[in-house]
Design a protein around this nucleic acid. Structure first.
Lengths: 352, 352
DNA sequence: GGAGTTTATTTGAACGATCAAATACTTTTT
DNA sequence: AAAAAGTATTTGATCGTTCAAATAAACTCC
């Protein structure tokens, strides 16, 4: 394997100095046009590529962001994080940033990893996913003055506009509000909701969207609303059970909304009347079986994360307290409407 | 943020030279025990971490492997690659290796990215996924003497034992053979197969497993076998259609095997007789709805990839032609048997 | 046209680690 | 006990880049 040309080689060949070559790459504006063109020609001709590690050593920045690859917690909806990861990698690349993965089993273990990557100057900052109330990771990162942005709002904080750290999140409330409105627009009045127990902040947020849209319209009373709701933990089987319960207790249903695609898939299985079911996350499964679903718009989330990480704040809140620039991005999800033509649920053959 | 200690700081504090500190980290064996302990204590006390980029600059190796994050081609089975990625990251970490992501839209684009990462000394080697016959990427990597291992055997090469490059793959043929045998063991004789068109090498491989197991047992004639097979492109709706066709043309069925979980999910939808359906990939969807499925054992694949990348060959075939060490790993997949209790497919209500 | 100002380019040093070669310290051998 | 051999540690140079300061070149202006 041939050895690679260095700045010095380029400089020699172009008849300029190392630094001029460096300037052509990093601040082209300060190099005279004809010099620049000459250098660029040589760069192209020699196939010169800057040595990333040398640059990092000198600039003391790695142009790399670290992100933990979550173990697949929930199977079906796990793909949301994967899509996010993909979007992040792609958009980071456009800005010359790299994405470095790591894994960890516990938050404490993760902090060890964060420290390792940070101390080794492997990364400039982190993206945190799956945050939770009282998350020790955010605390640690803030204390150590390390740049990071979370995908997930800081739960339990009153003033979202003045948070301890930068964040991007998806407005689940608005998503379910829209989903409810869409069904109402199609004539539905009694719209059921299969959601998560209220220990889940994310779940509460989504639930609120449904409730608000229902109450604003006034199609149902508060008591009726309570009957239209079933609470369960996530899962396909749970969705099926919840749907069965809903059909028993709620009476007639015009539509059903679910807090996840897993629940929605389960609900579809116990849905002989073909009541429109809407899921959440817009997973491949929803696409495959023709479920309407609320899409989290991971592209926009990824864009927001990078903006906050590389923008004015540089991934930190500290030291920019007086700025008017918002310190978060609340992404509005998008409802994907599908006809469930794809699921020609057949009748079982008569028992022999 | 406090500035990090360097080797020099540690050396000063421990009363030794830089190089001794370096030796303690990289070749502890050559340092006298008492000196080593003293240095180690100082390292721990100062919280010293080697600067990754500086080390890379000097050693000309990055301890990082690059892998392309595929766009989700097939939604449902996409999770296999994600699980592989997770396993790879985890196992790489144990060996002090990092995983760096990149994206690319076309093979040509990908080659550009490979070159960038290699030239910039960002990575020591690559893991290639989703290889295909005549893949220009493997050709380019071989020509440029770059270390890599593919997840996927080199299709179209006669002698798998003496390949152009290192590879790891899953024995789809064995997987379907086992799945067929399992059904036969449960008394099934007429076992249908929903597979992919024979333009797909992977598909042919899986299909062969089913055929061989069927023919070996001699439960069906060649003509019957042909009737028990339906060919279609991948997808849930396609699986449903294929199942319907199979039920029309094949007559009685004891079981159905599918080339993917997508097809299997589709098949389940048109399966009122509750014929046992087996999928492939063991995706979260299969787990959720209680489908038997062939698991690709991505952990073992990841282990094999790392072995080949860091082992004797160092990710290259060239220059080790006479070695007896095998240059590939063929992973035997594992059949996951499930009862499909989770899918209580209900009858539609009588039409009103 | 020369002093002053701006713009363009070059030079030496540094980032933090490891390599290769040199030196200091131990142990063995005769 | 001195020489030889082996082990442990140190020193100077280097990886490829960019920073900071110095120099050179090009304009401005009266």
């Amino acid at each position: 394997m041939a050895t690679f040309p260095t700045v010095t080689d380029v400089a020699l060949a172009a008849g300029v100095s190392r630094q001029t070559v460096s300037n052509v790459m990093n601040s082209p504006a300060i190099v005279r046009a004809d010099t620049r063109e000459r250098v660029e020609a040589v760069i192209a001709q020699l196939g010169y590529r800057p040595h990333a590690s040398a640059r990092r050593l000198r600039t003391r920045r790695s142009s790399t962001i670290g992100i933990r690859l979550d173990p697949m917690i929930d199977g079906i909806s796990g793909s949301v994080l994967d899509r996010f990861l993909h979007a992040l990698t792609e958009q980071a690349d456009r800005q010359g940033l790299r994405v470095l993965l790591f894994t960890a089993t516990t938050p404490e273990d993760e902090i060890t990893q964060l420290q390792r990557l940070n101390d080794g100057a492997d990364v400039d900052g982190f993206v945190l996913t799956s945050t939770f109330p009282g998350d020790p990771r955010t605390k640690w990162l803030i204390e150590n003055g390390i740049s990071f942005v979370t995908f997930g709002r800081p739960w339990g904080v009153d003033d979202l506009d003045n948070p301890q750290h930068l964040w991007v999140d998806v407005d689940g409330c608005a998503g379910l509000f829209d989903a409810t409105r869409a069904q109402q627009g199609a004539g539905a009045r009694r719209i059921g909701y299969i959601g998560w127990p209220s220990s889940s902040d994310t779940g509460d947020d989504r639930r609120r969207g449904w409730r608000e849209a229902m109450l604003e319209r006034g199609d149902v009373t508060l008591e009726e609303l309570a009957q239209l709701e079933v609470v369960t933990v996530d899962g396909v089987a749970q969705g099926t059970a919840a749907m069965q319960e809903l059909r028993r207790t709620a009476g007639h249903l015009d539509a059903v909304l679910c807090a996840s695609d897993s629940l929605a898939l389960g609900a579809m299985i116990a849905n002989p009347e073909r009541v429109p079911v809407t899921g959440y996350d817009n997973t491949p499964v929803a696409a495959a079986i023709g479920l309407s679903s609320v899409d989290q718009c991971v592209d926009e989330v990824a864009g927001g994360v990078l903006e906050l990480l590389t923008g004015e704040f540089g991934g930190k809140v500290h030291g920019a307290a007086e700025s008017l620039e918002p310190r978060h991005r609340m992404i509005k999800p998008r409802l994907i409407v599908r006809e469930f033509a794809a699921i020609p649920m057949e009748a079982p053959a008569p028992t022999s």
